[in-house]
Amino acid sequence: MRIPESFFVIYQPKYTVPCVFDLNERGTFPNHPSVTGTWGFRVLADTDLKASVQFAHLVHRPGKDPQTGKAYEWMVEETSIDLDDQLTLDSAAVEKKITDSEIRSALMDAFNEWHDNFVPMKKKKVDIEELKQKLGNVVDECKERIRKELVRKNQHWVSSNIPRRIHDFKYGLYNHVKERLYQEYQSNGGEDSEPNLLKKIALFNRVLDNFDHEDLMKPDGTVWRNEDEIWQCWIGFAGSEDEAYRICRTMDAVFKDLELDEVG
């Protein structure tokens, strides 16, 4: 099941695998898929710390897939319910979107148990500032896990090309910028060595090879999910979001000036 772009799973109950969230993203099936439970929920949050509950329910609802034209008997029905700044789940909103009273009751019980353990309190009131800090930390941890996984999954085709790229850069364009490149990087707060800076530039160019291509095809024949996944992978190889943006600012300043010099 797809997670909306820029959102991260900050909580999901420990459902026995395979659960409804393990089913394919298309969400339609000719036969009843093998799952340990027909419904589930998880809490999502985005980079602006806006949170919501994502609910999924496997239901028998025959139809025809508009993309493939194939008939199906079962489908995953999805719905999203926004949470307020105290991460409260409004029971009226749940009732409006989930008609089964038993499922609704079980969901509210499970959610409230998580909420009571997660949300910090101060003098019997929700501590909003501490909650924002805690939520932000959890989102950052989610980002870091995703980036590490992207590095692991793409390490083979990214790293295999880096020595050649470093060689070509050092004996080509680098000769025109070597007086400024490392100095510019350091002025932007960079603390890594110059050889590692060259490696990170090579990694940037390798990972973002197909960033502007409509098919988003990777060199190994697989496909990126979207442009954000490419960018998150680059951050993973750079080591941190700050370092990724620092490398980009450095390249933009140095190579942009080089282009202006060539034009002049």
Rank of each mutant, 00 (worst) to 15 (best):
S91Y: 03
E229T: 03
W231D: 14
V126D: 01
H156T: 14
G264D: 09
K148Q: 15
M251T: 09
E191W: 03
E77K: 11
E229I: 03
R145G: 02
E144D: 12
E77W: 10
G189L: 03
Q67C: 02
N24R: 07
Q133A: 13
N196E: 14
A45I: 06
N112L: 07
L58S: 03
D261N: 11
R61P: 01
G172F: 07
P13M: 08
A244I: 10
E214P: 05
Q155N: 14
F204A: 12
D46I: 04
Q133Y: 02
K124F: 09
G37N: 12
Q86L: 14
G37L: 07
E102R: 10
G136D: 06
D84F: 07
E102I: 12
H167D: 09
A244M: 12
F7H: 11
P163Q: 03
L173D: 12
D257A: 08
D82R: 10
L208D: 02
V35Y: 00
K153I: 05
S105E: 14
H57W: 05
S240M: 14
C19R: 00
S160I: 15
K170C: 13
W74E: 06
K125D: 06
N161L: 13
R2D: 03
N117P: 05
S101G: 10
G37Y: 02
T16A: 15
E95S: 13
L260C: 05
H176A: 13
P33A: 01
G189V: 15
D46A: 09
L203S: 00
C19D: 08
S160M: 15
G189M: 05
N31P: 04
K256Q: 11
S187F: 09
